[in-house]
Design a protein around this nucleic acid. Structure first.
Lengths: 225, 225
DNA sequence: ACCTGAACACCGTTCAAGT
DNA sequence: ACCTGAACACCGTTCAAGT
């Protein structure tokens, strides 16, 4: 790591894969996924759009590499305590990461030059599954369910939030509209949706995420029937 | 429903929202999400790209409407038996639907002209949650976890499968490459990933999906600690 | 009222030409 | 070896003009 105290962008530095990825992350955070264009990125790097192709194969690889960098940073900086608490902490860290950087969504399952962002998550949570003394035969379903749940919910949450932002909707107003719509549904054909219409107004997505996580952890710990 | 025995496309019929959506579904199934362009669609309908805008606001609405149609059909044609079996049946039906029509992925959370595809799923599964005698206070977390899990995993599965198809990878070959990559990781820093490298070779995504579903259902039925 | 299709303002990617 | 930027083959969307 030869980089040191590079607070702002320096133009004199030559192009490099690392520098391109750093600029990509900045651009994605600043302008969102739609804002990442080769023209904007090359302008940010004070070069031409073609120059980037010397270091990176295409847009997919660019996104994947940015994603991998950001996931690794998050996992590495989340503390390890007791198994269940560590799983919760990592789950929430990833949830919050994707919430703040919704573009991570699109690239988390792809891999850039061989190693996928997924492995960082898999490893950390897998180690805790072992510590919970889950029998070897059930470790796979435990880990695949957990990781699938964490990524699945986090992704959806990010998409929803982003949708709200791009259509600049006020959250409570938005939920209110759904609640109203649901309570206007025919109570005979939609009795359940009707009955929980009010509940959606006060719900918190992050709390729901934790509740589901607890449900799964309870299932992992419960004796098989 | 005035349509009857319209086996192939008829040009004489005038344009309509319904006809456009039907053509959209056909085009999406035939050529995938990338294949849905206004130019291709208008050609399919023997008209110009501008004509579609008379009936539909934009591409988002087009996708949302196609998605809603296809979800409603699936939910309506899945049988209702015992609560747990019905939840499983619907979960799998949606899993398979998204697997077969991966484009559903992009639109399932949006809504077209007021009603979201989500409501169909919510209602059916919610009714079964009630029949399981889940206390009122826990119904919300149960339904949001279940629906979140079902959609989350199904979506990821569809993305993965689609990735495999567009890069035309042989599945077992692809898994083999991941397994090899994982087993080549440093066993000290990646002990867990290392240990399950073999497991990934034989795993079945649909089985994992069911296993996770069972874990959640077990958690829903288990007594709170 | 409904449809047409040229035109506009963008994309990702390529590639001859430069240094 | 690395960079430039014009050019290519596309997009979604608009809108004057037609019927």
């Amino acid at each position: 790591m030869p980089k040191r105290a590079a607070t702002s962008t320096r133009r004199e530095e030559s192009l490099s894969r690392e520098r391109i990825i750093e600029a990509t992350i900045e651009l994605l955070d600043a302008t969102g996924e739609a804002g990442l264009t080769f023209r904007a990125l090359s302008e940010h790097l004070a070069t031409g759009p073609g120059a980037i192709y010397w270091h990176i194969a295409n847009k997919n690889e660019l996104l994947a590499a940015a994603c991998d960098t950001v996931i690794a940073r998050t996992v590495d900086s989340t503390p390890i305590t007791t198994p269940e608490a560590t799983i919760r902490a990592h789950a929430l860290a990833i949830y919050d990461l994707i919430d703040e950087h919704p573009w991570v969504n699109s690239a988390i399952m792809t891999d850039s030059e061989g190693n996928s962002p997924l492995v960082h998550i898999l490893e950390r949570i897998g180690q805790q599954i072992r510590l919970l003394r889950v029998p070897k035969a059930q470790q796979w379903s435990a880990i695949s369910t957990l990781v699938g749940y964490i990524l699945g919910i986090s992704k959806q949450n990010a998409v929803n939030r982003q949708f709200g932002i791009t259509h600049n909707l006020d959250r409570s107003e938005f939920l209110d509209r759904i609640a109203t719509k649901w309570s206007q549904l025919d109570a005979k054909t939609y009795p359940f949706t009707h009955s929980i219409a009010d509940r959606i107004r006060t719900h918190d997505d992050r709390d729901d995420f934790i509740a589901g996580l607890n449900l799964i952890l309870r299932g992992i710990n419960a004796p098989a029937r």
